[in-house]
């Protein structure tokens, strides 16, 4: 009997999958994405200067706001150290349809210039231009 019986339940050969290469690849991917990914939320402030303003800043059509090298904002003999405070005061100084021209003096950094442009735009002043006077090189 034993010699003629057919064993229907054959043992399947067990295939063992090695997870080590998978872990290696996944770790390499993780390290790659950790190194190259950036999560900084960038915002855009439009700042294209107007060529024509260079000569027309004394015109009544524009109120000139000057940024000095210590980061203070000067307009019509008044000074402010905060961009938000300056923008509120400048809005009160503006007459109807008057634009604002932001002029950076020699030695001024870009941070206060962007701050005042942004603060003026936030205050609802649409016509804000950066004066390119002295910036051409």
């Amino acid at each position: 009997m034993h010699g003629t019986a057919i064993n229907l339940h054959r043992r399947r050969s067990r295939v063992v999958l090695s997870l080590t290469p998978l872990i290696d690849v996944v770790f390499i991917l993780l390290v790659f994405f950790m190194l190259v990914s950036q999560f900084t939320q960038w915002r855009e402030i439009e700042m294209l200067p107007k060529a024509a303003l260079g000569e027309q800043t004394t015109d009544d059509a524009y109120l000139v706001v000057t940024v000095d090298k210590s980061g203070r904002f000067i307009a019509q003999d008044q000074q402010w150290s905060s961009a938000v405070g300056a923008s509120a005061a400048i809005k009160a100084l503006l007459s109807q349809d008057q634009a604002v021209s932001v002029r950076a003096l020699e030695g001024a950094k870009i941070q206060p210039v962007v701050s005042i442009v942004e603060a003026l735009q936030s205050a609802g002043i649409q016509n804000v231009h950066v004066d390119r006077h002295g910036a051409d090189r």
């Binding site: 294209l48 060529a51 870009i110 950066v130 004066d131």
Partner: peptide
């Protein structure tokens, strides 16, 4: 420097 950035924008 603001002049450098504005110069590039110009």
């Amino acid at each position: 420097p603001a002049a450098d950035v504005i110069g590039v924008l110009a």
